[in-house]
Simulated scan of single mutants.
Amino acid sequence: MNAAKHILVVDDAATVRMYHRTILEEAGYAVTEAANGVEALEKAAGAAFDLYLVDVNMPHMDGYGFLRALRGQDGPQVPAIMASTEAADSDCRRAFEAGANHYLVKPTRPQQLARIVGLLLGERA
């Protein structure tokens, strides 16, 4: 069996990180956590991730800033899902402009999150 795909969950709320970690680990993924965009960039520089699950509103660097910084780097680009309580079309548009591949409105549903992650990683049809 292949090694588990590695996902970085970026959210300032510990309870949300734990919720997403539980869903993703039950689906067979390895998970690392970061509490904001600055910490996430540091972790991304030191490890290869297969996907990013990113909150919008965080201290120090929000999700938009993190994705713009990540997408501005040389090297392989992997899928990113932005998850936010913000549900307006303008929020979704900003996420895609920053480099997101998908936008989810929180609270995320476990089956939906696992399905979208699998699709973006090319594992499920």
Rank of each mutant, 00 (worst) to 15 (best):
N57V: 13
Q112V: 15
D12E: 10
Y103R: 05
S90G: 07
M61C: 10
R109T: 10
H6I: 04
F66S: 06
A40K: 00
N36H: 15
R21L: 04
Q111D: 14
A95E: 01
A30K: 13
V31L: 03
M18C: 08
M82N: 08
D50L: 05
G63A: 12
T32I: 03
D89N: 12
A14S: 14
A47H: 13
F66M: 14
A35H: 09
G75C: 11
Y52T: 02
A80G: 13
E33K: 03
P79H: 08
V31A: 02
M18N: 11
L70W: 15
D62R: 10
A14M: 13
A30Q: 12
R21A: 13
H60Y: 13
P110F: 03
M61Q: 15
L104D: 01
R68A: 14
S90K: 13
V105E: 01
A98T: 03
I7P: 00
Y29N: 00
G65R: 07
H102G: 04
P110L: 08
A69D: 12
Q77A: 14
L41C: 06
A44I: 05
K106F: 07
V16L: 10
Q112Y: 11
A30C: 05
P76D: 14
A47C: 10
S84N: 08
A80L: 09
P107L: 09
D55G: 07
A47R: 13
Y52N: 02
V78C: 08
H6T: 10
N2Y: 08
L8P: 02
V10K: 07
L8F: 02
V117W: 00
A30T: 11
R94L: 10
S84P: 05
Q112P: 02
T85R: 07
A27K: 04
R124F: 10
A114W: 00
M18G: 07
I7N: 00
A83G: 10
V38K: 12
A69S: 15
R124S: 14
P76E: 15
T32C: 08
N2G: 11
V9W: 00
A34K: 02
G28P: 03
A100P: 05
I116D: 02
T15I: 14
R71T: 08
L41W: 01
A44Y: 00
Y64T: 03
N57A: 13
L113H: 01
L113V: 05
Y19V: 13
K5H: 08
E33D: 12
P59T: 12
L120P: 02
V54K: 04
R71S: 11
A3M: 14
M61L: 15
R94T: 07
V10F: 05
P107W: 06
